[in-house]
């Protein structure tokens, strides 16, 4: 399955990308998280949220979206 990932905030600096396209066969959002952490180990410490097709999902949700957004919390104000 081809998915497009968009990185928000600090995740852009940690991955060096604002977006990228992957072909993966993974069951859940959590499995995708693990896949990405293996690829970019620094992501592990950020407890980011993941949304698929504009809906924020828990890690147990099945991975079936084509657009995945990765969101870290923002602190500034």
């Amino acid at each position: 399955m081809e998915i497009k990932l968009r990185y928000f905030g600090q995740l852009q600096e940690l991955t060096g990308k604002s977006e990228e396209v992957f072909t993966v066969s993974l069951d859940t959002v959590g499995a995708l998280r693990q896949y990405l952490i293996e690829r970019y180990p620094k992501l592990d410490e950020l407890n980011f949220k993941m949304a698929q097709d504009n809906k924020i999902n828990s890690d147990s949700s099945p991975l079936n979206g084509s657009l995945i957004d990765l969101l870290p919390p923002f602190s500034g104000g």
């Binding site: 924020i56 870290p72 919390p73």
Partner: peptide, 15 residues
Amino acid sequence: CLFPSPPEAGIIPNC
């Protein structure tokens, strides 16, 4: 509901 717990200290910088 969005972020149940904050990130570890010092991970997310402020302005």
